[in-house]
């Protein structure tokens, strides 16, 4: 554990909780991509199956349980409790275009051929692109609520902070996992456009709207 990793985890946690609280408080999931949330639920489920097979620390297990619970809680709010507020017309990204290639890639580029390892690798590849339906939705509607922008910023910052963590771990522990590092860089690059808009608009008190 180092400061970059911890900041990344807290940023990730903040993002997930921010989204849950926003939906709960406003009684609405307008502007949120249900498809991205489905992908994140798949990501957490396939990655955190190791809750049952390996124990790292109380911190790790606790966070995994929180991420899983919050993710499925978000899906419940979006697709059951506040379903009438779900803006499915604008959530038109084809997620099979992300699910299938990630799955194929996790069979081609993987460290060890075991079920758990392939599922873990799949979760890494899928997470890298899971935000695409949400970014696509923002580009289609041309705007995002401020709280949604904060959510996206926190979620994007998490992997960027993990990159600093991997650089730190490379020098201090000789840690080098190219699968997670390359996927993490791709994931962060996808947010760059949004980061620019967030810094130039949202932080100056303006709504995030596209030209």
């Amino acid at each position: 554990m180092n400061i970059f990793r911890l900041s990344g985890d807290l940023s990730h946690l903040l993002a997930i909780l921010l989204l849950l609280v926003k939906i709960w408080k406003t009684r609405s999931c307008a502007g949120i991509s249900g498809k991205s949330q489905i992908l994140f639920a798949i990501v957490y489920t396939t990655r955190y199956l190791d809750l049952f097979t390996s124990f790292v620390s109380v911190y790790n297990s606790f966070m995994k349980v929180v991420f899983l619970t919050a993710s499925y809680g978000t899906l419940y709010l979006m697709f059951f409790k506040f379903k009438p507020t779900y803006d499915h017309n604008h959530d038109s990204f084809r997620i099979l275009y992300l699910i299938i290639p990630s799955l194929v890639l996790s069979f081609i580029i993987v460290h060890v051929y075991t079920v758990m390892e392939i599922l873990w690798t799949y979760s890494i590849y899928l997470e890298a692109v899971a935000i695409m339906p949400q970014l696509f939705m923002v580009s289609r509607t041309g705007e995002a609520e401020t709280i949604t922008s904060h959510y996206l910023f926190a979620l994007g910052s998490y992997r960027a902070l993990y990159i600093l963590n991997w650089i730190y771990r490379y020098y201090t522990e000789d840690f080098l996992d190219m699968i997670v590092i390359i996927a993490g860089i791709v994931q962060t690059i996808l947010y760059c456009d949004f980061f620019y808009l967030y810094i130039t608009k949202v932080l100056k008190g303006k709504r995030l709207s596209l030209p």
């Binding site: 990793r5 985890d9 790292v56 790790n60 966070m63 963590n165 840690f175 996992d177």
Partner: peptide
């Protein structure tokens, strides 16, 4: 988890 692999991360 082996600290040399990413499995100790979230």
């Amino acid at each position: 988890g082996n600290p040399k692999d990413g499995k100790d991360e979230l």
